[in-house]
Simulated assay, not measured.
Amino acid sequence: MAIELSFAKILKTLRINNKLSQEELAFRSNLDRTYISMLERGIHQPTISTLFALSKALNIKASVIIQLVELECENKNES
């Protein structure tokens, strides 16, 4: 699986686990809701500052998000 799709899956999972809508996540991270949607569909990739804004809004370290994406990529490569 491509990295952008792995990131998309992880972001959506984290958002849902935090019981946030795309609109609420966008508000908390000071991003546009359509941008959140594009990230969750793998259309766009976040900048480092966007990654930190998302991690703060999701109450998780940015490094943990990266680790989750790495694990997702590794799991897909093993399948």
Rank of each mutant, 00 (worst) to 15 (best):
N59H: 15
K56D: 05
S49N: 08
H44L: 04
M38D: 10
Q22C: 02
A53Q: 10
K9Y: 14
A53I: 01
I65R: 01
S63A: 10
L31C: 10
L68W: 01
I43C: 13
I10L: 06
N77A: 11
K9S: 09
F52I: 11
I43A: 09
M38T: 14
L71A: 10
I65C: 02
I36Q: 01
I36V: 02
N17W: 04
Y35D: 06
A53V: 03
I16H: 05
L71H: 15
S29C: 03
K12M: 05
E78S: 15
L54W: 00
L71Y: 14
I36C: 02
A57P: 02
A2T: 14
I43M: 13
R41N: 14
I36Y: 02
S21E: 00
R41H: 12
G42P: 07
S21I: 00
C73I: 10
P46Q: 02
N77D: 12
S79R: 14
A57R: 01
I48Y: 12
L31N: 09
L39V: 08
K76L: 13
F52V: 09
L31S: 08
T13P: 08
L31F: 09
L58C: 10
Y35G: 09
A26H: 01
K76P: 12
F7D: 06
K76W: 13
L58Y: 09
I10Q: 09
E78P: 06
L20S: 05
E24N: 06
E23C: 09
L71T: 15
A62G: 12
L11R: 04
T50S: 11
V69Q: 04
S6K: 03
R28E: 06
L25P: 00
T13G: 13
I66V: 15
E74I: 14
P46S: 02
Q22Y: 01
C73R: 13
L5C: 08
N18M: 06
I48V: 10
L68T: 01
M1T: 08
T50G: 04
S49V: 07
I3Y: 12
L39C: 07
M1V: 13
I10A: 07
E72P: 01
A53M: 08
F27L: 15
E23R: 10
S6G: 05
L71M: 12
S21Y: 00
T47L: 09
L71N: 13
L58H: 09
L5T: 14
S63T: 15
R33S: 07
R33G: 03
N59K: 13
S29W: 00
S79F: 14
E70R: 11
R15P: 02
E24F: 04
R28P: 07
H44G: 01
T13V: 10
I60N: 05
M1Y: 06
P46V: 01
T47R: 11
A8R: 08
K9Q: 10
N17Y: 05
I16Y: 03
A26W: 01
Q67L: 07
L31G: 07
H44F: 03
E70T: 15
L71D: 12
L20T: 03
I66S: 11
S37R: 07
S6T: 04
L11N: 03
R28Y: 07
I36A: 01
P46G: 02
L71P: 13
E23I: 13
A62Y: 08
M1R: 11
S49K: 07
N18R: 12
E24K: 05
N59I: 09
Q22P: 02
E4K: 13
N75E: 11
Y35H: 08
L51T: 05
A57I: 00
P46K: 02
L25N: 00
D32F: 03
S55Q: 04
N59M: 15
